[in-house]
């Protein structure tokens, strides 16, 4: 029982980061139909920014806002350099374009930094725990969950209460109808990338705090988790992406705790397998948003 409660908090902490990444991916998919395999590169890029700041003696109080800002700028920059040229292209082209971005960014760090692991200090409190009612929780998990919830509430307010949020949601549902209402497609897409970058920036802060290191290929794992969570939730559904993120985090932690020791190392493999099965039986994810084909 105690173990379960701890697992759940642990899983929600992990899931928070996935949820933020997945939400950013879903926002972009909504307006552009692009499944962004380059989303993890925001974590690679901010990882090196964090490393550079760390070398100059910056503390996490400086690094964290820096990471957030860089993530927003980088996200919008990638849109300007690559994705804007393939707007409206077939899915095949869009997916491979994002893969291209992923590899160019990775290779650029390979060239200009190095292939080796770059380490920086984690915050001092990262491993601290707090005891409550006989249970012991990592403070870090609680902070992540708290900040994520605040972020999700703010994002939800942005989407519900602002004109930009309305335009974004309307564009995701029917891009042409939104344009007929006077919504400027260019601004919505740029705004979507900015929002997606901000969400990824917050995820990056926690991801980097926990990892304490970065490499040119560091973006692959978070990208994959984010993409899978977004897909599990049903692409295009923002709520589904958040649910998918938490579900993925919980599934990982609970599986790792329950799997027999001999194959505990295969947790990720089992998760991938489960996701493959999900897509075999529910190609649209949990929340199906696809519309029937018109003839």
């Amino acid at each position: 029982m105690t173990e379960l409660a701890q697992n759940i908090v642990d899983g929600l902490g992990r899931g928070s980061i996935y949820a933020l990444l997945a939400l950013g991916i879903a926002v972009i998919f909504g307006v552009m139909h692009l499944l962004n395999f380059a989303h993890g590169e925001l974590i690679t890029i901010t990882g090196y920014v964090a490393y550079a700041a760390f070398l100059r003696g910056a503390s996490w109080f400086v690094i964290a806002p820096l990471v957030l800002g860089v993530a927003v700028v980088a996200s919008m920059g990638i849109e300007q350099v690559a994705f804007r040229w393939v707007r409206g292209a077939p899915d095949f082209t869009l997916v491979l374009t994002s893969f291209g971005v992923h590899f160019v960014v990775e290779a650029a760090f390979l060239m200009y930094v190095s292939a080796s692991v770059k380490n920086f200090n984690r915050p001092g409190w990262i491993a601290d725990t707090v005891d409550a009612g006989g249970l012991s929780f990592e403070i870090f998990d609680l902070v992540v969950i708290g900040v994520t919830l605040v972020t999700l509430v703010l994002t939800s307010l942005l989407l519900q209460r602002t004109m930009f949020g309305l335009a974004l949601r309307a564009s995701a549902e029917d891009f042409d109808a939104a344009r007929l209402m006077g919504v400027r497609s260019d601004r919505v897409i740029r705004g979507a990338f900015a929002l997606s970058g901000a969400l990824a920036g917050i995820a990056a802060i926690f991801w980097l705090m926990r990892a304490g290191q970065t490499t040119p290929g560091a973006g692959i794992t978070p990208m994959l988790k984010g993409v899978l969570a977004a897909l599990v939730g049903g692409l295009g559904s923002l709520r589904g992406a958040v649910i998918g993120g938490f579900a993925l985090g919980l599934a990982e932690v609970l599986l790792r705790a329950r799997l027999p020791d001999a194959i505990a190392g295969l947790t990720d493999g089992v998760v991938f397998l489960l996701i493959a099965l999900l897509f075999i039986f529910r190609p649209g994810g949990f929340v199906t948003v696809s519309h029937a084909e018109r003839v």
């Binding site: 004109m163 309305l166 335009a167 949601r169 995701a172 029917d174 109808a177």
Partner: peptide, 14 residues
């Protein structure tokens, strides 16, 4: 082509 994910007033505001 009203936006079914939005409420009535949100449609109007948009």
């Amino acid at each position: 082509r009203i936006f079914t994910d939005l409420s009535v007033v949100e449609n109007l505001r948009l």
